[in-house]
């Protein structure tokens, strides 16, 4: 498949077939990642800029490793080191980076829509590595890839619960789009203060009690609770949150046999997920990290060898 897209901004851009193509490509790269020598020359000479305006270690490292394993040259730029701290606006930063002729720009930004903003202005590929509360498509694709490796490509009939701060979660928004597209049924569990407005129009069901929400589930994804939500008055305290919305083994017994537990990280052990459960055999949390590298290799490969990519000189 010649990749038809310039940018990856949101899961809603992709078709079911394109998502499965990402997974199949990721599977090939996962094999490379299992070799003693993990580097292939596929993207030699390509430049990838990792522009992270919001702190992130794991996503940035994941993209960095993915690029380097494909022999692309990767350069990191973080908010603290960038001119944004000196008052430069996003448009000027982006045009400056563009003038350095990267082939792809991977953007993490605290504002929803920032990736689309750059994509409209830059000729290179823009890969959204998380924009505000809006979208985190590479996380959703790696979550989907992780589950596909266990369940197979057809998720019809599978039931996935996402529990936690849905309102402020770009992961939840992208996961809902992706899992629904793949045929799974998605359920959300959160206090009303952490549910997005208009959630009743989403293709999901919402259950406010976590124990009943776990019933019949094949996978449970816990979301990180940002500690500032308490300061914003959205919940009384962490202890109460953990008691009502923390996933533990007892609650998980209501789920289907073979249920899997996932977390996009970084975890607050003992808050949204029981400390021991994170390490239990149901947990796919470390598989997600490995899948992340393979998925991002697949994405860099597809976007940098896309249909309208200029031919080699």
């Amino acid at each position: 498949m010649l990749w038809p897209h310039k940018d990856l901004l949101c899961i809603s851009q992709l078709t079911n077939e394109e998502v499965l193509h990402v997974f199949r490509t990721a599977r090939r790269f996962a094999e490379i990642n299992a070799r003693p020598i993990k580097k292939v020359p596929t993207l030699k000479g390509r430049t990838v800029i990792l522009f992270f305006v919001e702190p992130s270690t794991r996503t940035k490292t994941s993209f960095d490793i993915a690029g380097k394993r494909l022999s692309a040259d990767t350069y990191s730029l973080s908010a603290s080191a960038s001119s944004l701290r000196k008052g430069e606006n996003l448009k000027d930063s982006a045009l400056t980076l563009q003038a350095m002729h990267p082939d792809a720009l991977v953007l993490r930004h605290p504002q929803s829509g920032a990736a689309e903003f750059l994509a409209q202005r830059l000729s290179c590929s823009v890969i959204n590595a998380g924009d505000g509360w809006h979208a985190h498509p590479t996380q959703a694709l790696l979550d989907g890839f992780t589950l596909c490796e266990i369940w197979g490509e057809d998720m019809t009939g599978k039931k996935i619960l996402i529990v936690g701060d849905i309102a402020h979660s770009r992961v939840a928004r992208s996961d809902v789009l992706l899992f629904t597209m793949l045929g799974a049924r998605v359920r959300l569990c959160a206090p009303k203060t952490l549910l997005p407005s208009g959630v009743n129009t989403w293709p999901v069901d919402v259950v406010s009690d976590l124990t009943s929400a776990c019933e019949g589930m094949d996978a449970v994804i816990c979301l990180r609770l940002q500690l500032e939500r308490q300061q914003a008055g959205l919940l009384p305290d962490l202890r109460e949150y953990a008691r009502h919305f923390g996933l533990n083994a007892a609650r998980l017994r209501k789920a289907n046999p073979g249920v899997r537990v996932m977390h996009p990280g970084p975890m607050n052990r003992g808050v949204e997920i029981d400390a021991a459960l994170a390490d239990a055999e149901q947990s796919l949390i470390l598989e997600q990290v490995s899948a992340g590298v393979a998925t991002r290799m697949a994405l860099l490969f597809l976007y940098l060898t896309r249909k309208d990519q200029p031919a080699e000189a």
Binding site: S112, G113, D131, G132, W133, H134, A135, A167, R170, R173, P196, S197, G198, V199, T201, W202
Partner: peptide, 13 residues
């Protein structure tokens, strides 16, 4: 505005 669209776009409404 707060509503379905702000929820989808991830913007504070």
């Amino acid at each position: 505005n707060e509503g379905r669209l702000s929820g989808l776009m991830g913007l504070k409404g």
